[in-house]
Computed example of a mutant assay.
Amino acid sequence: MRQPVEGRAASRLHKPFLLYGVLCFCFGVCMYLAGVLLVFPRYLLQQHALLDPVAEALVWYSGLPILTGITLALFDLLVLLKYKKPDVAVRFEPVRRRRVTVALTAYDDENSIGGAVADFLNHPLVERVIVVSNNSRDRTAVFAQNAGALVFDELEPGYGRCVFRCLSEAVKFTDTDFVVLCEGDSTFRAYDIEKLLAYAPHADIVNGTRTVEPLRQYITQLSTFIYYGNLFVGKLLEAKHLGRGTITDVGTTYKLCRRDALIGLLDTLNPAVNLEFNAHFLDRALARGLVLLECPITFHQRVGVSKGGNVNNWRGFTVGSRMIVGLLFDWRRTA
């Protein structure tokens, strides 16, 4: 087994050069395209004296971030990857107790929460369902309790606080070794728990991915823009933790976690991170050395109105941008 590199050398080795490289490359391409597109105002408005130098500078100098990005990416992939990728055997820890505790986030989901709770409670591997209502203004808590869930009300607003409360309550139950995090809007189904558990022997966290087309319903709140935005940010997260995982969906809220791994991870999470919390969760898990796998899951049209990052493409763009800022600055500028 390779010996770990100590001190400052180790710190340099684990700099996410591929992440920086990809972003530099994208910035350079945007500069180039901006310079090219200036052809329209230049000729339509006849502003050659003003805009020609700007367009020329953008096109010429775009090569600097593009070349820098390619250099950083190649350095990480060709030189540092062999030091970053863990030199360990494929993990296999058999699942001894397959029953799970399910924790559902909810905010003004009275139209969907009862059906979602019933779906999970009827699954033979589910021991209990927890619902955390994020100070809902409707009868979400009442309907969840009537359906058989253990209900908690998180008064502090914010998706991150709701998820953190879900996980914190779920790990208190010692009769289940796994916690399943999901939403109460009926976009996910209980039958996918079987698939998540199939990956459990190999991982600490099994993250559901909505990127497999045949498993996505035709109409969902995951627009084409948000779909590829999730994929792009997922690959940035993968680049940051090069050699540690394959990530295609950072926005999914359906995941299975080993309880013992989750207990230690909770101390590193910041509940103040809002709609970007799922990316924050995965980033912190990988930084802690946990094993992360993805599992294809089904994705359905939600019941009710979306209140999260999928409201529209602009909301998705802002959430994705904040995710990228969080990945670059260790989430200090997003909470």
Rank of each mutant, 00 (worst) to 15 (best):
Q217I: 02
G229H: 11
V212F: 15
R216K: 11
T209R: 05
L222W: 03
Q217L: 14
K235F: 13
L215W: 06
K235G: 05
I205G: 02
S223R: 04
L236Q: 00
F232I: 05
T220W: 02
G234E: 11
V233D: 12
G208I: 04
I205H: 02
N230I: 11
N207Q: 15
R210H: 00
R216W: 01
V206M: 02
I226C: 00
R216Y: 00
L237I: 09
R210D: 14
A203T: 08
P214Y: 09
N207D: 03
V233S: 10
T220E: 06
L215A: 01
Y218D: 04
I219A: 04
I205K: 01
V212S: 06
L222I: 04
I219C: 01
I205S: 07
N207H: 14
I226N: 00
E238P: 07
L237S: 02
N207W: 13
Y227N: 06
Q217M: 11
S223H: 05
Y228K: 02
V206Q: 00
V233C: 13
N230G: 10
K235L: 13
T224F: 13
S223Y: 11
V212D: 07
F232G: 08
R210P: 02
T220A: 02
F232Q: 12
Y218Q: 08
Y218E: 15
N230V: 13
G229P: 09
D204Y: 07
E238K: 04
L236F: 06
Q217P: 02
T209Y: 08
G208T: 05
I219K: 07
V206E: 04
A203E: 01
G229Y: 04
V206K: 00
Y218T: 13
P214Q: 04
S223W: 05
I226V: 13
L231S: 14
I226A: 04
P214V: 11
G208C: 07
E238H: 09
T220Y: 08
Q217S: 15
T209S: 10
L237T: 05
T211K: 14
I205D: 03
G208Y: 05
T211S: 10
Q217E: 15
N207V: 12
N207P: 00
S223C: 04
R216H: 00
P214I: 12
I219W: 07
Q217Y: 13
L215Q: 03
R216L: 05
L215K: 11
K235C: 10
G234P: 09
G229A: 15
V233H: 07
V212N: 05
P214F: 12
P214A: 12
G234R: 09
R210E: 10
Q221N: 14
V212L: 05
I226S: 05
G234I: 07
E213D: 12
I205C: 06
E213L: 08
F232C: 10
L222A: 00
G208D: 12
Y227R: 12
